[in-house]
Design a binder for these strands. Structure first.
Length: 203
DNA sequence: GAAACGATTATCT
DNA sequence: GATAATCGTTTCA
């Protein structure tokens, strides 16, 4: 059961350009029942990786389709988990038509429900540090590559409409931590939230 | 505070 | 063999 949260309609919402989905995902709720405890976060920061023309994408044109990026070619509304620096798992939502590699990275959420469980999973952290980064939130929600290609309309990990972020509160910047495609402003966040990862790393 | 840096491993050249 | 869509600790001001 999905409890009191109603799943998004996957096809219509996610089968659109990554930039559009990244902006509109702000304010949605990410619900995880993994590990037997319900944890809910409001999505406050995202990044778009819109296709093969994006040199920063794991599916950039020179790379093509490989074992690692294959989930990005899957149907819209499914999960793509990738490992970063050998240690951190990050969650992406696959968007656009099946067969076309595009995704939205979920960079930060604001804890709404299951705070005690998240604190137990990330001991010694302040509440702000629970979910204010792409690999922090996967730890707090106890999610990872066992959910590779999982449909994000189904338990135990799904996205629901949540509360809409007004246009005036949406900030748009360049993406964080990449070395290619650094001029594109494909990062979106809710400027009212205290859970946004501020790390804009200079190059 | 801000900035530097090491961890740790799959993936691609 | 180099690199990477990060995090957490240490170091310095």
């Amino acid at each position: 059961m999905n409890g009191r949260y109603r799943p998004l309609v996957a096809a219509s919402f996610f089968d659109r350009p990554a930039e559009t989905v990244a902006r509109e995902l702000l304010g949605s709720f990410l619900v995880s029942d993994c590990g037997g405890k319900r944890c809910v976060g409001r999505i406050v920061e995202t990044e778009a990786y819109p296709g093969p023309h994006d040199p920063a994408s794991h599916a950039a044109a020179p790379i093509g389709r490989t074992a690692r990026n294959d989930p990005m070619f899957g149907p819209p509304g499914t999960a793509y988990f990738h490992l970063n620096f050998g240690v951190h798992w990050c969650l992406n939502v696959v968007v656009g038509p099946e067969g076309y590699p595009a995704a939205v990275l979920i960079r930060a959420v604001e804890p709404l429900e299951g705070l005690e469980t998240m604190r137990r999973r990330r001991p010694g952290r302040t509440d702000r540090e629970l979910t204010s980064g792409p690999a922090k939130l996967t730890q707090a929600l106890a999610i990872g590559p066992s959910l590779q290609r999982h449909r994000l309309s189904d338990a135990p990990l799904f996205i629901t409409p949540g509360t809409k972020v007004p246009k005036s509160s949406v900030a748009r910047t360049t993406r964080v931590g990449i070395t290619k495609g650094t001029t594109k402003r494909w990062r979106f966040y809710d400027r009212r939230s205290g859970w946004v990862s501020r790390s804009e790393r200079p190059r």
